[in-house]
Amino acid sequence: MLIQTLVNGISLGSAYALTALGFAIIYRTLGIFHFAHGSVYAFSAHVAYSLITLVKMPLIPSVLLTMLAGGILGMIINFLIYEPLKRHASSGQVYMIASMGASIVLQNLIATAWGAITKVLVLPNLETSLYNIHHIGSAVITMAQLLVVIVTVVALATIALFSKSMIGLSIIALGNDSEVAENLGMKVKAIRYITLAVGSALAALSAVLVSIDLRAVDSAMGVPIMLMTIIAVIVGGTANFGAAIAGGYLIGLIKNFGIWAISAEWDNTLLFIMLVLVIMFKPAGLFGRKISKLGR
């Protein structure tokens, strides 16, 4: 049973890690607590549903298009909300409230467009191979679950490489010191858009993978994901991107251990209590080094 919990935890943790990394990239670079991240996730899952089940597009183009859709939504949110707020030099709390409002609007738009009931994601051709059960020791795992882990690892490696490119470095630089970045002639506005696009694309990727694994999407799925992302990022810490990734895996593992050790209903309470404790006693996060920028 322990191995099963570990297996489930790593699979779930991978999805959380991707989403948390996307959120952390936006937060560390722009200082925005992007509450709408969960809604971008939900939107992407629904786009994937439409492409895969309704349009019956093959898997890989669907995934790529979904990531594109998510990235574009992120940029639209930046255009409509964050850039105007920046022009007014708004404070962090204003961004937070606006982002929260945006996430509510998005969530309900998704419900209006796709319907509020849970929709089943059907993969026409790969159906059998993806949901076959494989064994790891005494534990079971489906190909879909394994896919989540593998794709996550590949995505993380890609991001690591990307962070050494000029664009990647400029994103990190902007997050470090926007004034110096401007003085060096960096195109800060464009970098802001790219940041939102990259962060959202990661959430979109996570959303597709999870939706394929769970075979379902529903309009409220963004809310629990946002919860978990916030917990992962705060508990892990915002010291660096690795902390957010570690936080994601940690939350995935704790959640599954909680289900195993206590019961399914209280797994979230455990996490929430952990969140509150971390904020109260170690605000920099478990892997954090110093008080993070949270609290602008």
Binding site: E265, W266, L275, F281
Partner: peptide, 28 residues
């Protein structure tokens, strides 16, 4: 109380965490 000492962002998230815990207790 501990969160009241911290800045706005942290305080807000603490209240969110508090709400989730209470909702969970109500439901479970």
């Amino acid at each position: 109380l501990p969160a009241l000492r911290l800045k706005g962002d942290y305080f807000f998230i603490t209240t969110m965490g508090f709400t989730w815990i209470i909702t969970n207790i109500m439901t479970n």
